[in-house]
Structure formats: structure tokens, C-alpha cells
Amino acid sequence: MDSEKPPTRRIQGGRARLLEVTIKLGRPALALVITLEMALVFVCLLGLMGVVDLAFLGGHWTSFGGPAVISVGLTTVAFATGFALAVPMGALRAHGPRGFGARTRLRGAGRAGRGVRNALVAGGYVSATGYVEGLRGTPIYVQMWIVFYVAIFTWPTFDYVYLLAGYLALTLNTVAYQAEVFRAGFQSVAQGQIDAARSIGMRRIQVFGHVTLPQGLRLVTLPLVNEWISLFKASSILSFITIKELMFQANHVGSNLGHPIEAFLTVAVFYLAITIPLSRLTSWLEARNRIPGLGFATGR
């Protein structure tokens, strides 16, 4: 080895870095701006090439504003309803199927009363789990049609039954996903906190209200934002039941008016303009808080 000349480095230049495979994604804003500029250039090029009808684009893009409001509004209302319903469901799932122990002092907690209560808890847990697994394991597209048909048969004379059906479909779906988020959030609250609260004599329900819930809610902010984004994207299926949201408008412009490429570009801008800043927000929140293990993917 000593008599050999040491082999020369094949790759010159650039300083050898320890952490090649790990990154530092600096300057995201600059990247975003450059991407937007490139997209703009791309569109103009397409226009020049005659692929895109720029005049049409210019004339029609404002018609997407109203549908955008409907998309965002409907998503938010469904999300809020889902939130209210999912917190208790998530709490029940976090608690588990086992009832409360013999020492638990609950109202009506004689032997028989406790038996009933434990059965209720177990039954509730099973139902909640069935609901969550069922709704998360099936496509929202299918759920939507089931809700739709049930709705139009239950309220055949209601004027806004389509809107109601869409709202219900979104809500029922998001309840399931949010319940999982809350379950994980409640279960992530450090056991030490709970032990401390119980050791000063708090009852279980107080521990939940004063420790688990407040801390859990702080932990779930990030996944909830992700869930909103997810629901917002899912709302595009409401176009099938003729709710005049973004996808519906895009379909109208694309198929009925015959300009699918222009429609695509416009609706893409609208969707991305809402989803990208929000997901940047979550990345920023994640970097700030760095709560490990609470950022699971919420797909539909």
C-alpha cells in the first residue's frame, strides 16, 4: 500500500459533507417564488404555442371565485361539525374498551350500576371503533353516494337536499378521521402528567378535563390542519351531486364550454393557492414544536 500512489479523487470540487443525505431545506419562499414564475412562464409558452387559449383564460377565471368560497365554506362547516363530534369519540377510543375499575366512584356506581356502565363503555368503544375503521377504510366517493341516496329518500321534498347530502357526507367522513387524530393526541399526553394529577386526588373525569384534554388539543393542531386540507381536497367529489363548488365549475368550463386545459390551469391555481400556504404553515408549526409521532398522513 505504501509503494502505491494513492488513487486520486474522482469527484473534484465541492467540500465533502458529512451530512449529504440529510438536508437543510433553506429558502422555501425563494423556491416557491421561482416555481410560480416558472409556472407562469410555462403557461405563457403554452399560450403562445396555441395550446392554451389565453383570452378565454383571462375572461373566465373570475367565475371560479364564487365556487371557491363554496368549497372552502362547505369544508369548514363540515370540519367544525366533525370536530365537535370527534372529540368525544376520540376520547372514548383513547379510553379503551375496558370499563372503569371497581374503585371508581361514579354516580349510580353500585355493583349493578357499574356493570351497566362498563357495558355501555365497552359497547360504545366497539361502535366507535367500527365506525372509525369503516369510514376510514372505504372511499369517500362511495360514502357520498350512500349518503346521497339515503338523503334524497328521507327528505324528498327538501329544496337543498343535495347540499345537505354533501355536507353530511363530508361531516360523517371527517368525524372518523378526526376521531383518530384525537385518540392519538389524547394517548400521547405524557403518562407522568396523568400520574401527577391522579396522585393529588383528582378523579378520572377531572384528569381528563384538566390534563388530557387541554394538552391533547395542543398536540393535535398540526394533524387537524392536515385533515382540513384533506377534507378540502375531498370536497371536489361533491361536484358529482351538482354542488357548485370548484371542481363543478372546472367541469363546466372544461367540458361544457370545451376548454379543459384552461379550466385545469385555473382550478389548479385556486386549489394550490389554498393548500400550499396551509401546508407550509404546518411545516413551520412542526419545525417550531417538533412533536414527534403525531404527524400521520390523513388521506382519504
Partner: peptide, 28 residues
């Protein structure tokens, strides 16, 4: 062992100047 590249100065391993940029760090 060249996990970090020095800014200035030299390191000799048995009279071979390993801070020479021509030398492959893997060999070192």
C-alpha cells in the same frame, strides 16, 4: 480522517499529504 475538510494547513500520513484535494478521502 477527512470527515471534515480543514480550511488551511496540512496533514501528513506517513509522508503522504492527505490534505491534497487530489487524494480520495475513502483511501485515507
Amino acid at each position: 480522517n477527512l470527515l471534515i475538510e480543514p480550511d488551511r494547513g496540512d496533514i501528513f500520513l506517513e509522508e503522504v499529504r492527505i490534505t491534497d484535494p487530489q487524494i480520495r478521502p475513502e483511501w485515507v
